[in-house]
Amino acid sequence: MDLIVNIVLGIIVAATPLVFASIGELVVEKSGVLNLGVEGMMIIGAIAGFAGTIETGSFMVGILAAIIAGAAVALLFAVLTQTLLANQVATGLALTLFGLGLAALIGQSYSGKSAPDFPKLNIPGLTDLPIIGPLIFGQDGLVYLSFALVAGVAWVLTRTRTGLIIRAIGENHDAAHAIGYPVVAYRYATLLFGGACAGLGGAYLSIVQTPLWVENMTAGRGWIALALVVFAAWRPWRSLLGAYLFGGITIIQLHSQALGLQVEPQILAMLPYLATIIVLVLISYDKAKARLNAPANLGKTFFAST
């Protein structure tokens, strides 16, 4: 039983950075922008969060630093693609490479240091309950925040006028512009939100999960977050589900021997990507439904001719 609880706890820790990064990217893509720089924003968030925490000793400062750093990198992307109309795919890829390099540079002096333990929720009585105690009442604050964030995004996108405008801009930016919505301003806002979320996801890795700074420590999680958005068919709750599935596979991989699974770890490591491809095939099988899922103007450059 302890093994199971430990595995589930591990899954939560593994999934939370993915939840943050993918929910941010989901909002960005809903507004019609494809930012492939998630990996870069995450790693910058990771080093900023780690450095902030080590330098000040305050987790709050570290987390804030990560959010600001992630958003700042996203702002760079926004200026390049929304104001200067650079190609989004190329800029996103460049952003990832830039982020990895810059983070490594900043992180030189932090290698090998470790952050203090991140506090977890402890409600006497509740947290001591068997099984559900540690699982439901014993998490760190960021885990609860990640759930709240998904719920908030889901609510804003489907129930509010702001969400409707974001979806409309992602669907047809020319029409949105003709009606009078500031397409570029909205996209700046969603990009900043996406960057902040990716930064937070990165900080979770370096402050809570490891908690150390290691070069390239995001190890492709930014790409998984991108894949998750597609996997989720651009629906917030499904991206949460996806993040936990992917997190689960990562953890089961680690425990596979203890669980007596006779599967090559490489095959398990492949699974998330395989699942994404299968989901992509499934969602594009029905053309009418595919149209409803993917924002029609995803990745297209908007230029107001008038």
């Binding site: 409707l164 029409a175 149209r291 029609a296």
Partner: peptide
């Protein structure tokens, strides 16, 4: 009423109308 319709295909009639009117009307 635009020549090239300023409508959003993947949204409903109501959502489209909501987008095109000022907030207090929505």
């Amino acid at each position: 009423v635009f020549q090239h319709f300023s409508l959003f295909e993947a949204l409903t009639v109501k959502e489209n109308i909501e987008l095109g009117v000022n907030p207090e009307l929505a």
